[in-house]
């Protein structure tokens, strides 16, 4: 038990330190600057129908990857909260998930904008869109559930339980749904996606920095939210925070 808690402190300590450092923020800015400018200017393959809209790949796909990363991190912190019962872990879980929700909205908007030009309409009941709409509803429900409760401990516990339940069900559901409706989305039903562009060096060179940059951006936003809320939490619960800190060092 003692070994277990010190190990989790070690990882948490590492995360706490890294949150304050600048190197990954600089990397984020560099990657995003390159991906944004390069995404607009560098050559892309000429494909029918897609044409220049293929550039949306640089902005749309990173949103989903960032969202999934943030949801996963939030899920991990929800589990951690149930194990430790420290409100700090709840702040991490909530802020990471809330940032993930923001990215799901961005991903939906960029996807619908692209679909309007390529599929002819913004919403066409595509399974990817349906799965996304469902996951957005699930996480909006998380916000409703969470903000309906005033008591901090109770809010933390119940929202952690719902977050774990929803996330663990969401993954198989998103995997099942596309098998029940035909898809137009690239990567389904013979439509070209990543794999066919992988050989194209000019796209790879922009795509991977875009992934890294947007993921770091997501965690950067989340870390700022976490840190402001930690300050507020420390101010409001001076006494309890000291106890938790002392327990951690003991």
């Amino acid at each position: 038990m003692a070994g277990d808690s010190s190990r989790s402190n070690g990882l948490q300590g590492f995360i706490d330190t890294q949150m304050r450092l600048w190197w990954w923020k600089a990397l984020c800015v560099a990657c995003l600057a390159f991906a944004t400018i390069g995404g607009m200017l560098l050559p892309v393959p000429r494909l029918n129908i897609l044409n220049e809209t293929i550039r949306n790949l640089y902005y749309h796909v990173p949103m989903w990857i960032t969202m999934m990363m943030l949801y996963m991190a939030g899920f991990a912190y929800s589990i951690k909260y149930l194990r430790t019962g420290k409100l700090k872990d709840d702040i991490f879980a909530y802020q990471l998930t809330a940032t993930g929700i923001a990215f799901s909205v961005f991903g939906m908007i960029t996807g619908m904008e692209w679909a309007k030009y390529t599929w002819g309409e913004a919403w066409s009941n595509d399974p990817k869109q349906l799965g996304t709409a469902l996951s957005m509803l699930i996480y909006f429900a998380y916000l409703v559930l969470r903000n309906g409760m005033k008591d901090e401990e109770k809010r933390a516990k119940i929202s952690a339980v719902y977050n774990i339940f929803a996330f663990a069900l969401l993954i198989p559901l998103i995997w099942i749904l596309p098998r029940m409706v035909d898809s137009l989305h690239p990567g389904n039903g013979g439509n070209p996606a990543f794999k066919s562009y992988d050989r194209d060096f000019s796209m790879t060179i922009v795509l991977y920095p875009a992934f890294i940059g947007w993921i770091l951006m997501g965690f950067w936003i989340a870390s700022i939210c976490i840190r402001t809320n930690m300050v507020r939490y420390k101010q409001e619960n001076r006494y309890q925070y000291d106890i938790e800190k002392n327990n951690a060092h003991a």
Binding site: L137, A141, V144, M149, I158, L177
Partner: peptide
């Protein structure tokens, strides 16, 4: 959460649609 069954519907509908 000391809520009513409306919350249950909000939480449940997206989960049971598939």
């Amino acid at each position: 959460a000391q809520q009513n069954s409306a919350l249950m519907a909000i939480l449940g509908f997206p989960l049971v649609t598939p």
